[in-house]
Amino acid sequence: MKPARFVALLLRRLATGLITIVGVTLVTYLVLAELPGDPLAALTPIDQRMALSVDQRAQLRAELGLDRPVLMRYARWAGRLLGGDFGRSVRTRRPVFTEIRRRLRPTIELSVASLLLVTCIGLPLGWILAKRAGSRADTATSSLLLVLYALPSFWVAIVLQNLLAVSWGLLPLYGRTPAGGDPGLWGRLPFLILPAACLGLHQLAFYTRFARNTALDGINSVHALFARACGLREGRVMLTHGVWPSLVPLATLIGLILPSLVTGSILIETIFSWPGLGRLFYQAVLSRDTPVVLGMTVIIASLTIVGSLVSDLLASTLDPRQRRGKEAEL
């Protein structure tokens, strides 16, 4: 692709991405405004003496702009966001940006670990299975993958936690670092194994099967047959007709995993007390901490857009045939 066209494409995608973010945040804002429930729930305990007086509640509502029409509120919020201000959490009164930043690193660690699991174990395994299609190893592994996919991941998390951490004491039970100081990335690794494995479990099963099936279709295709007839060695056939084409749809799909790793981890984070963004988000939604929910929405939406852009670019780089078609549709 020529650089100029590439830049133009990138700009066009960023522009549509921006529109998507506006769309998502607007819809989220409207939905949040209509949600039943006390907007100051985060500050109002039901089971002990009331923290806020009637006047304080009125004042906080004014501070949050709850007495203004919802579209005006959205405009004000969006204006501040452009200036880099995400607002303050209702519950903790700390800036939303601070709240998110504090939990960003654990989330990235967990996401990267489970992505690595999918790409470094899942894909090669899928290709190997495709190469040995029909063998007993293939059959056994394929059925195991079906089984893995069918297990609810949080249920697996609980069972594995009870077996490996509680009964056998092989892995840490919860958390990200041991009490008494951070031992560095290497020392934190055992803490990462169970959450990352449980979080990546379904994706691992899904993508391994996917890689196997696409690669298998590729090496059984007419083109592959022709290549073999021309005297190409089997390894090369596998690479060009099995591995390579299976990367294209995979690139598309992996772009879609990115946002789901952030939001999909609520259950795993709860079970393993992992200090990530998922729990922050869950707690914020339940306690109607609107500024935090919106801040997270912006982040998730951006990740989705970046993910889909990256996967489209990857796909068009990997598959020259798609370039024309892709560009036409972008």
Binding site: T20, V27, T263, I300, T304, S308
Partner: peptide, 12 residues
Amino acid sequence: TDVVYAFPVLVG
């Protein structure tokens, strides 16, 4: 589809 993907499922 991008909007649906990016929309927080929990809120929905």
